[in-house]
Write a protein that binds this DNA or RNA. Structure first.
Length: 413
DNA sequence: GATTATGATTTTCT
DNA sequence: AGAAAATCATAATC
């Protein structure tokens, strides 16, 4: 627009702009246009000498004014500024100018002032809060996250050690996060204050309304919040990596202690006809082995399926435990049995005397006496009670395993 | 380092 | 819902 003026502008102001006509190089341009009607003298396109002189005088005046400003002392300038500020028309003029600004350039920004909270940021906030990184410092924050993550899988005996390591690392992340957040907030506050002061200062000489300052502050905060989002995102990533490293149970699998395996195996082989411990029995076993109930369940699940898949592989182990149990039973011979007892006493529950006979170790062999004994047991009141609580047992274990028990194992059962 | 053992998880079944 | 079966991933062993 402005650049076109010299070409098309031959109106009343044409030829009076500062510097344009004064520049000698512009004359050929102007000369393209024929002389307009307000020049009846039919000048050949060159500015009239009077006009030219007038323009030069104007420019000279302006230059002179500029020069005098630099000559003014600071006090003088301040006094003038003050006088301007105290001018009775100033507030009115100020507000009018502010209004005009609002209606023009700044109206665009009004539309985006009330934007909804960023869903991504909300998600990050929620996660940081849940992980105990953000929010109030509470001792149980990290621990709660850990227990929540491990509740399904159970805890290994050395888990407390690893959890403290996890907590320590998490608190490191927390510290870094809070330090960075503080830095960010400080920087944001500093910058905001600086800009506000600057704008307030400038509002004395140019139309800057308080509303505009507020808006500017909001813009600054928006810009800074993107940095905050990045910080939150990287913190979340760090927490996720930490979690996957420390809380993935499969990653840190530890074998149970020998003693724990012993206890579990003893129970398993002494209940080979129905290796489904009740909830109470599981709790008891868990207590004895120093593992969780779900770990006991896992162990029995694994053991059952692996035993069933390859019985011959487990024969030796089975016989060892059967012998152990049988010997235990022999030792206890004569002592009163409590058929409905639970827990470790259940190991010898109902195990009949093997008539002094040592376990035969007839791998896979199955005599008719054992079979009938097994059948008896199968339909004994106790067994039927247990069976009703273990639906799968009658369908799967009974058919595939129980009828392959060796005499020693059966005796143990 | 290949193989096996084993605890945990996931999927399927009853 | 709980167990079986399949699978994964790591520990232990050779």
């Amino acid at each position: 627009m402005l650049q076109q003026q010299p070409i098309t502008g031959n109106g009343p102001n044409s030829g009076r702009g500062i510097g344009l006509n004064a520049h000698p190089g512009m004359h050929p341009l102007n000369s393209v246009h024929p002389p307009t009607q307000h020049r009846p003298d039919g000048d050949s396109g060159l500015e009239g000498t009077e006009n030219g002189h007038e323009n030069r005088r104007d420019i000279g005046d302006i230059l002179q004014q500029i020069m005098t400003i630099t000559d003014q002392s600071l006090d003088e300038a301040q006094a003038k500024k003050h006088a301007l500020n105290c001018h009775r028309m100033k507030p009115a003029l100020f507000s009018v100018l502010c209004e005009i600004k609002e209606k023009t350039g700044l109206s665009m920004r009004n539309t985006q002032e009330e934007e909804p909270p960023d869903p991504q940021l909300v998600r990050l906030d929620n996660m940081l809060l849940a992980e105990g990184v953000a929010g109030p410092e509470k001792g149980g924050g990290a621990a709660a996250a850990v227990s929540a993550a491990t509740s399904s899988g159970g805890m290994s005996p050395d888990s407390s050690l690893e959890h403290s390591d996890y907590k320590q690392k998490l608190s490191q992340i927390r510290t870094i996060y809070h330090t960075e957040l503080e830095k960010y907030e400080q920087a944001c506050a500093e910058f905001t204050t600086h800009v506000m002061n600057l704008l307030r200062e400038q509002s004395r000489t140019r139309p800057v309304s308080p509303r505009e300052i507020e808006r500017m502050v909001a813009i600054i905060h928006r810009k800074f919040s993107s940095i905050q989002t990045q910080l939150k995102q990287s913190t979340c990533e760090a927490v996720m990596i930490l979690r996957s490293r420390f809380l993935d149970a499969r990653r840190k699998r530890r074998n149970f202690s020998k003693q724990a395996t012993e206890v579990l195996n003893e129970y398993f082989y002494s209940h080979l006809s129905n290796p489904y411990p009740s909830e109470e029995a599981k709790e008891e076993l868990a207590k004895q082995c120093g593992i969780t109930v779900s770990q006991v369940s896992n162990w029995f699940g694994n053991k059952r399926i692996r035993y069933k898949k390859n019985i011959s592989k487990f024969q030796e182990e089975a016989n060892i435990y059967a012998m152990k149990t049988a010997m235990g039973a022999t030792q206890r011979e004569g002592s009163p049995h409590t058929p409905n007892s639970t827990g470790s006493a259940d190991l010898f529950l109902g195990a009949p005397p093997v008539n002094g006979e040592q376990p035969g170790y007839h791998m896979g062999a199955q005599d008719s006496v054992s079979q009938s004994r097994f059948a008896d047991r199968l339909y004994s009141p106790r067994e039927s009670r247990v069976r009703s609580s273990s639906h799968a047992w009658s369908c799967s274990w009974d058919r595939t395993v129980s009828n392959k028990l060796t005499p020693a194992q059966l005796a143990a059962c």
